[in-house]
């Protein structure tokens, strides 16, 4: 069909491991849908057949952080919720990326008041900020494509010297 048609005869095919992993990685970015408020509705819309996030290989929204590469934080993050968001982020395996979807998540948005964290970058490393209140699904897909570009520029050796995350032991009483 595709590749093997070109590989007839004595042809051969070379690539680097990096290129292969990048290609695989960026076409299977599994999101963790951190839908906290109204932006989550648009995030769901981007999964429907009209906008179809499956075109980018990201239709597998996983509700367990252990299987995710990308956290889409969609909604107003209060101080009380910030601990939960961070805990879920910490459970995602490396390498991982974060999209701050919407005005609230990026800057506190219209909630300029005491309970709302004025931008999740105060406690999470954010890769892409998406403007809008709420952003349209195409805007989110654009962010996803930028994440894919970013993944495309990531090499395995970028992670070489990174220390393993510290493990905290949780004791159950």
């Amino acid at each position: 069909m595709g590749l093997e048609a070109r590989l007839n005869g004595d042809s051969f095919f070379t690539t680097t491991v990096d290129a292969l992993t990048e290609w695989a990685r960026k076409n299977s970015v599994w999101p963790m849908p951190m839908g906290i408020s109204c932006c989550a509705i648009e995030m769901m819309a981007s999964g429907d057949p009209k906008y179809d996030i499956a075109r980018f290989g990201s239709e597998v929204m996983r509700f367990t952080p252990r299987q995710c590469d990308l956290m889409i934080v969609a909604g107003t993050v209060t101080y009380k919720m910030s601990h939960v968001v961070r805990k879920i982020y910490d459970q995602m395996p490396d390498p991982k990326w974060v999209i701050a979807m919407g005005a609230c998540t990026s800057s506190g948005g219209m909630y300029r008041s005491y309970p709302v964290v004025q931008g999740i970058d105060q406690f999470l490393p954010v890769d892409i900020y998406v403007a809008g209140c709420p952003p349209r699904p195409d805007n989110l897909l654009n962010a996803l494509m930028q994440i894919q570009d970013k993944i495309g520029r990531t090499k395995a050796r970028d992670f070489q010297d990174k220390p393993l995350p510290e493990l905290t032991v949780i004791q159950n009483n």
Partner: peptide, 8 residues
Amino acid sequence: LSLPKNKN
């Protein structure tokens, strides 16, 4: 109000 500690 506390924020989570940044580990990395």
